[in-house]
């Protein structure tokens, strides 16, 4: 219970996995899940920092991240639904009209 570095390493690994997931997965919902994974990884780091420094500000920050993530998921999934409704596809690669 003295060194919290392993937690941070785990956080970094989860974050990187999430980032790679955003880059390689094509299903918009899975991409969204990977974004959530990244947010959760950063939350872990924040909680670890709270313990490291002995105050609760880190936990409050993690709390805010959760609230914002909840709002983001609601809007994001609604957007995915709308796109799916009009294009019959949930692939992020299909929405590629805005280009050169």
């Amino acid at each position: 219970m003295d060194d919290l570095t392993p937690y941070l390493v785990l956080s970094a690994i989860l974050f990187s996995i999430g980032a790679v997931g955003v880059l390689v997965r094509r299903n918009a919902i899975v991409v969204f899940m990977c974004v959530e994974l990244m947010l959760n990884a950063s939350n872990l780091a924040l909680v670890v920092f709270a313990k490291q420094h002995g105050n609760l500000e880190g936990q409050v920050a993690a709390f805010f991240v959760m609230v914002v993530a909840a709002a983001e998921v609601v809007v994001g999934l609604a957007i995915i639904m709308t796109i799916f409704r009009s294009r019959r596809s949930a692939s992020v690669d299909d929405a590629s009209l805005l280009k050169y």
Binding site: V22, R26, V92, A95, S96, L98, K99, Y100
Partner: peptide, 17 residues
């Protein structure tokens, strides 16, 4: 250079990363 704007959001995310 405009070829970089290929419309794929994942390519943009790659550049962000």
């Amino acid at each position: 250079l405009r070829r970089a704007q290929n419309g794929y959001v994942r390519t943009y995310a790659l550049s962000v990363l």
